[in-house]
Each structure stands twice: as C-alpha cells, then as structure tokens.
C-alpha cells in the first residue's frame, strides 16, 4: 500500500494550477483533500506522474454570499457544517457534509473534491443536483454547468484534462429538505435519497441506485399531483426502470430512503408553515 513515484507541485494560485495542468495535460492529477485520491494512489489503482496540490491555493477556499451562495472548491466539509453563511443559505448542504465521513475525513475533504470524485453512492453530488447548484470549471476559459450536467457516470465528470473545478454556486431558496442515507451514519452509503420541498419547486434525487445522482421525473410529477410518499417512491421505481437501472437491492434501499426522506421533509415543511 505505497503509491508509485510521482512529482509534486503546490501552486499558490488557481492560475498557476491551471497553467501546470495545461503543461502536463493528461499526465497530472489534482490533489484536493486527498480522502479519495490518496487511497487509490496507495493501492496503485491510480497512478499519476504529477500531483498538483490545490491546498495552497487561497482563492479556491472561500464561502461568500450575494444573490447566490458561492463556495470555493477547496472549502473543507467541516467548514460547510459550521459556517453560518452556509447553514443559513444552504442548510441541506451543511447537513449532508456532516454525513460524508468521520470527523478526521471531513476535516480534510473538500466540497470540490467530493463532487469531482463523483462517487455514485455519495451524498454531496446528490445534494448539488437537488439544490440545482452550478459548478464553475476553469481551464483555458471559464464555463458554468448545472450540477446535473456535471456528473457523467460513475467517477466521471464533465471536467476535461485541462480544467479544475473552481467553485460551486447554490441558489438561495427557502425550502424544507431531508436527506436519508443507508446506513444512516457518516461514511460510505449503499443508497440514499434527497428531498427538497420549496413551494412549487419539488426536487427529488436518488443516489446509489445508478451511476449518477438521478432525478426521478415521474416521482416528482406524482409528488406535484399530491401523491402519498409510498406512491411517489413507487413512481420513482418506474423512473429507475426508464433509466435502465437493474432491479436489485440498492433500488429497494433507495425506495425506502425516498419514502423516509419524503415523510421527514413534509413534516419539516408543515412545521415551517405552522411557525411561518
């Protein structure tokens, strides 16, 4: 469990990092929190002649709020949990960050790293999709993509060789939400569901069942039509069929998680109305 040799550079600006990426195109890996990449390097499942460490790039670690909540890709998960701006602007993101692993992992792991790793069973990509986040990719230019278009497959994203994920932007919106993860504990999940109920805007996302976070359109329609949680979850199974997700236990878990998350989100929504 020792990585193959690599060279190491630690740029101090995103411009330098992008220049290094361009210079070593296809032969370099970006190192953020390292919580996913380092084990892959240590087991030599991943080899990279060069590591470009982003941890010394100050312009990638920030939380700011204007008309959107804007979070630098190098922001550590532990900060997302605690930062009052994040907790006020995207409480679901703060809650999900706390589920992403034990404290030692969250102390180091970053939001950008969690999204770029694109683990199909991870909660943060699902939350990014559920909150309609927008990712900012910087390379020779800058492009913005909706989170739903960023995830292309299991551990595959829209990032190209010369790009880095610079920031993630979340719309500021009042909404009731719930995240349900199985097993319900920090760390690796089998499956889960995220529910966001913001007035007319109802978003459901399943994770673990399929290669990318999946928004079940039929289930969202059923929800809009006033269906009960179990019926919504039933409709979500039809969405998984349509997406070609095979019939297996992960699906059943996702279904259970969705039912549970809907119950909780509705209870929160009622509570908010009562107290509103």
């Amino acid at each position: 469990m020792k990585p193959a040799p690599f060279a190491y550079r630690a740029p101090t600006s995103s411009a330098q990092a992008i220049a290094l990426l361009a210079e070593h195109r296809g032969r370099a890996r970006l190192l953020a929190g390292g919580q996913a990449l380092m084990p892959l390097l240590a087991s030599r499942q991943v080899r990279s002649p060069l590591l470009i460490d982003l941890n010394r790039v100050p312009d990638l670690a920030f939380v700011s709020r204007a008309e959107r909540l804007r979070i630098g890709a190098l922001t550590r998960l532990r900060r997302l949990e605690a930062d009052p701006v994040v907790r006020a602007g995207a409480p679901l993101l703060a809650a999900a960050a706390a589920l992403a692993g034990p404290v030692q992992v969250r102390n180091r792991a970053t939001l950008g790293g969690a999204l770029a790793h694109a683990d199909p069973a991870a909660e943060l990509p699902a939350v990014a999709v559920a909150l309609d986040a927008r990712v900012e990719l910087r390379g020779s230019g800058v492009r913005h993509l909706p989170a739903a278009d960023f995830f292309r497959g299991a551990h595959q994203t829209a990032l190209d060789d010369g790009e880095l994920l610079a920031a993630i932007e979340f719309p500021l919106r009042e909404a009731a939400f719930a995240i349900e993860k199985i097993p319900a504990r920090p760390g690796h999940a089998l499956a889960g569901a995220v529910v966001v109920l913001g007035g007319e805007d109802r978003r459901l996302v399943l994770f673990g069942a399929g290669p990318v976070p999946l928004r079940p359109a039929r289930a969202e329609a059923a929800l809009a039509g006033g269906a009960a949680p179990a019926e919504v979850a039933e409709a979500a199974m039809a969405d998984l069929d349509a997406a070609g997700v095979p019939e297996d236990v992960t699906r059943a878990l996702a279904r259970g998680a969705l039912t549970r998350a809907l119950d909780r989100a509705r209870a929160t929504a009622r509570n908010q109305v009562d107290h509103g």
């Binding site: 919580q35 380092m38 084990p39 087991s43 404290v103 030692q104 180091r108």
Partner: peptide, 27 residues
C-alpha cells in the same frame, strides 16, 4: 489500513485531526 478507514494514524495538523496516511509529508 492505509486507506483512511481505521483512524489509527490520526494526528493533529494545524489544529484539526487528519488521517496521516492520507496526507503527504510535503503537504
């Protein structure tokens, strides 16, 4: 484990615990 699962290598770095198997010395 050398894959960030067991916590036996936990040390404190700049005031926060980290898994020292997943941090490079140069970092």
């Amino acid at each position: 484990c050398e894959e960030g699962v067991c916590g036996a290598c936990t040390v404190s770095m700049d005031g926060a615990t980290v898994l020292s198997c997943l941090v490079l010395a140069v970092q």
